[in-house]
Design a protein around this nucleic acid. Sequence first.
DNA 1: TTATAGATGATAGTATTACTATTATATACA
DNA 2: TGTATATAATAGTAATACTATCATCTATAA
Lengths: 225, 225
Amino acid sequence: MKMKLQVIMNDDLFLRDPEHTELGRNIVKYSIQYIHQFGFEAFTFKKLAEDIGTTEAGVYRYFENKHRLLTYITAWYWSWLEYQIVFQTNNVNDPVIKLKKVIKLLATAVQDDDQTSHVNEKLLHNIVISEGSKVYLTKQVGEDNKQQFFKPYKELCSVISAIILECSPKYKYPRSLATTIIEMAHLQNFFMNNLPSLTDFSKTKEDSDIIAFLNDLVFSSIKKR
Amino acid sequence: MKMKLQVIMNDDLFLRDPEHTELGRNIVKYSIQYIHQFGFEAFTFKKLAEDIGTTEAGVYRYFENKHRLLTYITAWYWSWLEYQIVFQTNNVNDPVIKLKKVIKLLATAVQDDDQTSHVNEKLLHNIVISEGSKVYLTKQVGEDNKQQFFKPYKELCSVISAIILECSPKYKYPRSLATTIIEMAHLQNFFMNNLPSLTDFSKTKEDSDIIAFLNDLVFSSIKKR
DNA sequence: TTATAGATGATAGTATTACTATTATATACA
DNA sequence: TGTATATAATAGTAATACTATCATCTATAA
């Protein structure tokens, strides 16, 4: 069985749908590579165009600016991740096992998914770790939110908070705990690799330590008392 | 009693010490105002210079670039906050009360501190919430770390993790829990005000709700079991 | 088969940003 | 009085973040 998985994106995120053309898919593909390698600050449409063999104006036909492109690829990531979670927790009845799977998915280095040829999920995962919060930490956050740019993130948060409530129906902070899990899965990874003394994982640098930390944090909080 | 409180800064953070001159103090003061009002992306040394009534080159004599300036003011904030914590938890014997005070200090809107005339801590607190993580979420994080730019943040993390261990000597993740408290105190505030559906505080929008959430999170985790 | 819409390429141009350099002036202090 | 220090004024450069125009190529509907 060979399937192609297509993420449906909010079409206010782009000017021309990058999924529809070779150039569009290349823009997404090479953006991910460039941002991963040199960081979002160093990333420009001109340099990207050179990498692809098109022109700056060519890229601008697809995305309004580089911030919008970052918003696009992170939104794509959250949608993809929600799908992974829904898929992998399907038919699991025990909500505790579900939540553990979620934590594991969030905190584990991703494998590139062959179903989506032009997106390297492994690189994208790393981008979301180090650049993801720049998407909303801006003065336009309100307007971007009105245009539903953060819907995939919010949906993921909803899914996780629903699982939390399944585990512990009376827990009072399911959404805040959900964002805590998401953000900390990423931030502890960033700290572990870049500012290790801010974590307790500096010796091993293992994803599994972060998972253990998050499991401990989450399940002691939501345990019925 | 009228005291002047001076934060000693790592002098690799600036080219010329802004505390020493009127212009320097103005650069810090007006940067904080500008970044608070328009955000870090819109902030340039040219616009700042116009606000102050000096020239772009004048600002460059104090700081290498705007990222370095942001690093400076956030480092200043963390140092100042650590002092507040040490001061306010002094003579408190019960580590649980200490930790609660820490959480409260982290999650409460700050009052402007008259002891530091040219820094508006209230605005700076908001800047650290919305721009603070941009300081380390860069490709230069390793080099900046070598130059000790994040020492104040790390010290704060150490102080908090020491209190956590006082509460619960066997707790395995004191540092990661400390950064979780710090980051979540800020991020839940940002979400509450900008993307409220990601939190459980959208109705009240009260700092006290965030404090309650963090207290619940922290004390259920470190409780002896 | 032709007309045409859609996508791309090539080129040019602008305002702003992120700096660096130089020179002159003001002040401070020894 | 001389000298160091800080600042102001000005100029200049390379890169960034766009916008605009026009020619070409290609797929497909008339």
